[in-house]
Design a binder for these strands. Structure first.
Length: 674
DNA sequence: ACTCCATTAGAA
DNA sequence: TCTAATGGAGTA
């Protein structure tokens, strides 16, 4: 039998390769079989990257397994190339990625793009020299964990390699990176791997320092491709047992995973913005479940989702001992915001409640009779996004868009306000209530607040942290530290006091999560204050979120929150899917889904527009009219969540197979539903 | 994105 | 009856 070069011999051993192609079309979301040429027999190992001809073109893919025979009836094509024999897709990560895709009605290809960093050939060739110390340390002492009721039991579980799962409520003032480092060190000393995920680069820095005694690598988005791949490979090759990082590290391939850790699980940075929009909490919980690993998930506050995991019996509370909490909890007082005084930055210092000013003054100066020295005072102010809201100059009603009733804002130095929801310019705005045509800023930014406060405390240094300039730490010197939520620096010896000025902006948002999110931000700031230090919050004391802060009781608050959402039929008590896109596309798609019984369709309703000048879509004309978007929600019981995801995926498959109509975005558990 | 194949319209 | 044109399905 004469054969051309193309028909060269096929591998004798396991001649068939099952390949997942890197194409994110729902109807192609399954393995395809290829023949392994004899020349590639050695390199074509399970998990390696390959290149194959698919539908006439060369595409990347991952080799899933080698088998003896194929089920496929037709002729098999051959692997074109093995990109490298490095098995980057481990069995654990494959199972996880498949489960995440199924959970979120997405494709394996999309999840693998999030999970596996691009290859860097040079980094792959190097013999690794990693940052962390090489040998596994000995088991660390329980240290701060003795202050938690179940702390020692949890560590004992880690040491015994048991899958203990904790819903962690960190004690205020605790140095949480050290507590995580002890849990990680205990797991590593027991010979198992650890994955730790924190919201941002600043948290990662703190954690990196705390992990100095544990062999680890840090993964974050700001590493270059080479360094990123180098560290990721170090974990994959089993050279380091512990990986710490931001969101993408949730997929890090550590050897013999024994513990997953997620800090501050309510932070929206844990939600991946790319399809299929997985959330780190869900991914890590799924991963711990599949790998038989322990889990440590939580923060100072408690999310309804984590409470749901406790209610389902998946995790157990890990909370501070009551007697310890009584000693360390900040002394919170509420100053009601009756006069809308904080909304008017110009008058803010003049009219700041005397309680807040007194607290700040004595904290800066120290207390004469006690041993307490003066120290820094943390002032939490609204984030930039909330700052630029504007109101009617005469009657102070919030200025709203004439088209869609969205809030108006002024961006940068521009004169004309535009709508934050639909983007329409409000050229001829008049107040709907009093008819005035003039607007004023409701609040100004942190910089302005800093300026105003500085004037009220002459001689006291003012530091600001937020936006582009985030401070990681401040010294124990007396100073005013103005920070936006999430950017609060850690004070080396704790803050002498904290003023929480952004309550109205946070609580007033039209969001299902407004109260929970507000409490989370308050607690994250208040937790940085010295034990039993003063905290003043500008909000009505009777509000549940304020009560929870005063009593430092995130668990009870969250349980009520979850119960309330169960009553209203909101996540996480139920599962929700959102379908977004052009209006006919949404209607079309929803109609084509073979919905499971008891699924409930809400809408579709208008959902703003896609901005026409989006830089990401290069072929869109700048003057193209923005396309009106609609959104439908589908609600179903948690039990049937997987069935719904499967149905949505199937509908996407039908749609992508015969390229019918415009794309729709399918999102499970969207961050905002209200 | 590309190919293959079935179906169908058109012309001998 | 043959052939070219067209659309839809499948992609190994």
């Amino acid at each position: 039998m004469a054969k051309g070069a193309k028909d060269q011999a096929v591998s004798e051993r396991l001649p068939v390769a099952r390949v997942a192609v890197d194409i994110s079309l729902a109807h192609l979301d399954r393995p395809f079989d290829y023949l392994v040429p004899a020349a590639l027999a050695e390199a074509a190992v399970p998990g390696c990257r390959v290149r194959v001809r698919f539908a006439g073109q060369l595409v990347d893919g991952y080799l899933l397994e080698r088998t003896q025979a194929s089920e496929h009836q037709g002729r098999l094509a051959r692997l074109e190339r093995v990109i490298s024999p490095e098995p980057v897709l481990t069995p654990e990560i494959f199972d996880l990625a498949r489960a995440v895709a199924d959970r979120y009605a997405g494709t394996l290809a999309d999840v693998l793009r999030l999970a596996i960093p691009p290859r860097h050939a040079t980094a792959e060739r190097e013999i690794l020299a990693t940052g962390g110390s090489k040998h596994a340390g000995s088991r660390p002492a329980a240290g701060p964990w003795v202050r938690y009721s179940a702390g020692e039991a949890f560590l004992a579980g880690l040491a015994d390699r048991r899958p203990v799962r904790a819903a962690w409520s960190a004690l205020p003032g605790s140095h949480w990176p050290a507590e995580i480092a002890i849990a990680a060190g205990t797991t590593a000393a027991a010979g198992r791997g650890v994955v730790i995920v924190v919201p941002d680069a600043r948290d990662l820095e703190l954690l990196d320092a705390a992990l100095s005694g544990v062999s680890h690598v840090c993964l974050s988005a700001d590493l270059g491709p080479a360094e990123r791949y180098r560290r990721w490979l170090a974990a994959r090759r089993g050279l380091v047992p512990v990986v710490a990082g931001t969101r993408a590290a949730m997929f890090a391939p550590v050897t013999d995973l024994g513990l997953v850790v997620l800090w501050d699980d309510g932070d929206d940075l844990h939600a991946e913005p790319r399809a299929p929009y997985p959330n780190a909490r869900e991914v890590l919980a799924l991963r711990a479940h599949q790998a038989g690993a322990a889990a440590l998930i939580g923060g100072f506050a408690r999310t309804a989702e984590l409470t749901q995991l406790v209610a389902a019996g998946w995790a157990r509370p890990l909370t501070g001992r009551p007697e310890v909490l009584r000693q360390v909890a900040p002394l919170v007082r509420a100053a009601p915001d009756e006069t809308e005084l904080a909304r008017d930055a110009a008058a803010m210092t003049a009219r700041l409640p005397s309680m807040a000013l007194r607290a700040a003054r004595s904290a800066l100066a120290g207390e004469a009779r006690g041993a307490l020295a003066g120290g820094p005072v943390l002032v939490q102010v609204p984030r930039r996004g909330y700052l630029a809201a504007i109101a009617c100059d005469r009657c102070r009603a919030q200025a709203r868009c004439a088209t869609c009733s969205g809030p108006l804002e002024v961006v940068g130095a521009r004169e004309i306000p535009d709508c934050r929801w639909c983007g329409a310019m409000a050229t001829d705005w008049t107040c709907a209530r009093c008819g005035s045509g003039r607007v004023r800023a409701l609040v100004t930014g942190a910089a302005r607040t800093a300026e105003e406060l500085g004037r009220a405390f002459p001689g006291v240094p003012v530091r600001t942290s937020g936006g582009q300039h985030v401070l990681a730490t401040v010294t124990a010197e007396p100073a005013l530290v103005i920070a936006t939520p999430g950017a609060e620096p850690v004070a080396s010896e704790g803050y002498a006091a904290a003023l929480l000025l952004d309550g109205w902006a946070l609580l007033g948002r039209p969001s299902l999560r407004a109260a929970e999110e507000t409490l989370r931000r308050w607690m994250n700031a208040a937790a940085l204050v010295r034990p039993a230090g003063p905290v003043v919050v500008l909000a009505e004391a009777s509000l549940p979120a304020v009560q929870a802060l005063i009593r430092w009781d995130p668990v009870n608050f969250s349980e009520r929150e979850l119960a309330e959402r169960a009553e209203l039929g909101f996540p996480p008590a139920v599962r929700m899917a959102s379908i977004t896109g052009a209006s006919d596309a949404v209607a079309d798609f929803v109609g084509s889904v073979g919905l499971p019984d008891h699924a409930e369709v809400l809408g579709p309703v208008p959902a703003g527009t896609v901005p026409g000048r989006n830089a990401g879509h290069h072929h869109q004309q700048p003057d193209e009219p923005p396309e009106p978007q609609e959104r439908a929600l589908i609600r179903i019981s948690r039990r049937e969540g997987l069935a719904l995801a499967r149905a949505l995926h199937a509908a996407q498959a039908t749609r992508s197979a015969r390229k019918g109509g415009a794309a729709v975005r399918v999102q499970l558990d969207p961050a905002e539903v209200a």
